[in-house]
Every structure is written in structure tokens, then in C-alpha cells.
């Protein structure tokens, strides 16, 4: 059952991305380009998403277990550190270069544009590098 709901949630996420226009990198860049002809669509995507998901999260935060029985894995870190800030800044630079972030990139991957394949391979390499660097750092410590 949990596997089925995971699949359905993934499908819904993708349909939402397509409907909202966020699978079009040109539209995302239209939002990030404040000095050009500005397209505020992305802000409304966030607004629509938060209006719905915050209700679910409010309920989830009162509970220890999810409705299908598994423990609710709420993130526990509270510290505002350099990794959070620098990592997010670096992510934003990459986002601004191509107009792609992980969700839309995955949703577009099988639609046949080579550019998305190149981006996703490089993104996977970046994530793999992170795992390697972290493993080395933890081994030293």
C-alpha cells in the first residue's frame, strides 16, 4: 500500500509541475529575471502548494506515525550553518544558469530532450561527489 501511495504521490507531483508551467525552464527563468519582463507564476505555484500542504503538515506534526503505519520522518536539524547557506547559494546559481531544479528535471527526463539528460547526469555526478566527499570527511573525523 505504501508503495502504491508513493507512486501516486509522484504522479500527482509531476502533473502539478506540468499544469503549473514549472516544467518549462524558460518560465522559471522568467520568474528569476526581475529586471526583465517579470513572470510571477512561480510565486503562485508556491502559494498554491503551501496553502494545501501546510494543512497536511500541521496534522502530520501532531502525530508520530503516518496513516499507513510507518513513523513520520520529520527533519530534526535546527542549526543555521555554513553548509546550509553556501549549499543553497550554490544551488541557486545552477538553477539560474539553466532554469532547471531537481523536480522538473526528473519530470522532463523521459520526454526526449538531450539537454535534460545532460543536466540530470551532471546533477547525479554532483550528488555522487557529495557522497564521496562526505564519506572521506567522516572517515577522517
Amino acid at each position: 500500500m505504501r508503495k502504491l501511495t508513493a507512486l501516486i504521490a509522484g504522479l500527482l507531483f509531476g502533473l502539478g509541475l506540468y499544469l503549473s508551467g514549472m516544467t518549462n525552464p524558460a518560465k522559471v527563468l522568467g520568474f528569476l529575471d526581475l529586471a526583465g519582463e517579470w513572470d510571477p507564476s512561480l510565486a503562485l505555484v508556491m502559494l498554491g502548494a503551501l496553502a494545501v500542504s501546510s494543512v497536511f503538515f500541521y496534522v502530520a506534526r501532531q502525530r508520530r506515525t503516518a496513516l499507513l503505519g510507518a513513523p513520520i520522518k520529520m527533519p530534526t536539524r535546527r542549526t543555521l550553518d555554513r553548509r546550509l547557506v553556501l549549499g543553497s547559494v550554490v544551488f541557486g546559481v545552477g538553477w539560474g544558469i539553466a532554469g532547471l531544479c531537481p523536480g522538473p528535471a526528473v519530470a522532463l527526463l523521459l520526454t526526449g530532450q538531450w539537454q535534460v539528460g545532460v543536466f540530470v547526469l551532471a546533477m547525479a555526478l554532483g550528488m555522487w561527489l557529495f557522497e564521496r566527499i562526505e564519506a572521506r570527511r567522516l572517515a577522517k573525523a
Binding site: M22, L47, S53
Partner: peptide, 26 residues
């Protein structure tokens, strides 16, 4: 190119997905 309604509705679907994933799957 601004698409207020489609973006708001698409966003709501994304929010529903994230909401279901936390509440059903944790």
C-alpha cells in the same frame, strides 16, 4: 506569459502530493 490560475492550481496539486506523502507514508 504570466499564468496565475494554472500555476495556482498546479501548485495546489504539488502541495497535495507533498501532503499525502508526509501523512500517508511519513
Amino acid at each position: 506569459d504570466f499564468t496565475p490560475w494554472a500555476s495556482l492550481l498546479g501548485g495546489a496539486l504539488i502541495g497535495l502530493s507533498a501532503g499525502l506523502f508526509i501523512l500517508l507514508n511519513g
